[in-house]
Design a protein around this nucleic acid. Structure first.
Lengths: 218, 218
DNA sequence: CCAAAAGTGTTTCCGATACACCCATGA
DNA sequence: TCATGGGTGTATCGGAAACACTTTTGG
């Protein structure tokens, strides 16, 4: 057996957020060929200094968008010949959701091409990133029902209505208020603070926090 | 930005079967260092001639064990530094199940070290393959309830009791006969042939076939 | 007629869904 | 007192689980 062949390895992140009641995906406008001018998922090559794939995707995300300290769930690897015109690249896709107000895009030179784009208006993406995005969105809809990943999307304190809205935007359908509250309560992941949020001319809403902000599957 | 670094990429397969009523995993006894003499999952490096990761894992599996024409589901990628003492290797793990009687192990020089090993008696494996095996088994238990992957495990014709036994061995717990039959019938994936299987001194069992042997999620 | 596995329905339970009214606030 | 969103409970439905007896065969 000869020396094993070597290949480029990369990570890509599908990072979702809810902004103004719509589901957004964090994309980078490419400055160089291939696919110059098109949108792509943030990501990049695995470096020797990355101790793990997880570290790689976090580093790339930070460098390209300023997003830091975020939970990323691995989704799938893509390694078909021809998926990158420059040569073979095996990429590992990750999923994340964040609260967009925790992030200031365009604050560095490198991240100046990062944008929140409406998922519903995303057209063709660079490479096979349209496929990755579609699969990530599908996975997100499962994850949100099945894990505590929604933690990432909300601020430290939030009302149950805000939480429900996040679910509705991600799932793309309305939920029943009473059933949603019963469901979320039975998971026992929240506690009610003694504070309320007053906004507008109506009864103030109780503010909640997560008991444990770590990712956990139900 | 400099040239992207290159890395070894590999695939590994966790191939399960049920033999004599016990759950088995297909392992290779390593002939060379590192981990010489230890068991490992079958797998190997991605070659330039492999047009996809899927093709790579199928090729490796065929070369090392003679197993051919099998459905493999991608599970997860592992890329931590140090998981292979020879240098960094990013590996992509796959899951499969097969009917062990469709395969003749040890029929070639290269595959002479392949063995079916009781999952319950597997000790330490080479590399991080113990982790991969554990995660694969977990995934298998979900897959079997959620997809038609059990197709791979059974012969062309089989009785419902044989099918149920496969589920029981994989899940590691007994199932209720009537509930199992109701459940499997409601998925509408089988048809009853007009033949029966006579074996022993008791009522013959009807033989069934799959309507469609392709992998499908429920 | 006996042993052994095949085959078959009904009841119960629990989680998911549907659904409508009162409450607290500021203007 | 009104407009606005916050907050709450019950009845129904449907799928999952529990559960036991009859049938067919060869010896």
């Amino acid at each position: 057996m000869s020396e094993p062949p070597k290949h480029c390895v990369a990570t890509d992140a599908a990072v979702f957020s809810v902004v103004n009641g719509t589901l957004k995906i964090l994309l980078i406008k490419r400055k160089y060929d291939p696919f110059k001018g098109m949108f792509a998922l943030p990501g990049g090559f695995l470096e020797d200094t990355d101790k793990s794939l997880n570290e790689c995707v976090k580093r790339e995300l930070y460098e390209e968008t300023g997003v830091d300290n975020i939970f990323l769930k691995m989704l799938h690897a893509y390694g078909d010949v021809g998926r990158d015109p420059r040569g073979r690249v095996v990429t590992v896709a990750y999923l994340a959701v964040i609260n967009s107000s925790d992030v200031e895009l365009n604050k560095t030179k490198v991240s100046e091409n990062a944008e929140w784009v409406d998922v519903s208006s995303v057209k063709a993406l660079a490479f096979d990133h349209s496929t990755i995005l579609a699969e990530a969105l599908d996975e997100l809809r499962h994850e949100i029902m099945d894990s505590t990943i929604v933690f990432q999307l909300l601020k430290k304190r939030f009302t149950l209505t805000e939480m429900q809205k996040s679910y509705e935007v991600i799932l793309g359908k309305p939920l029943d208020k009473r059933n949603f509250r019963k469901w979320i309560k039975q998971h026992d992941i929240l506690f009610a603070t003694d504070q309320t949020k007053m906004e507008g001319v109506h009864r103030p809403a109780r503010l909640y926090e997560f008991k444990d902000k770590r990712y956990k599957r139900f």
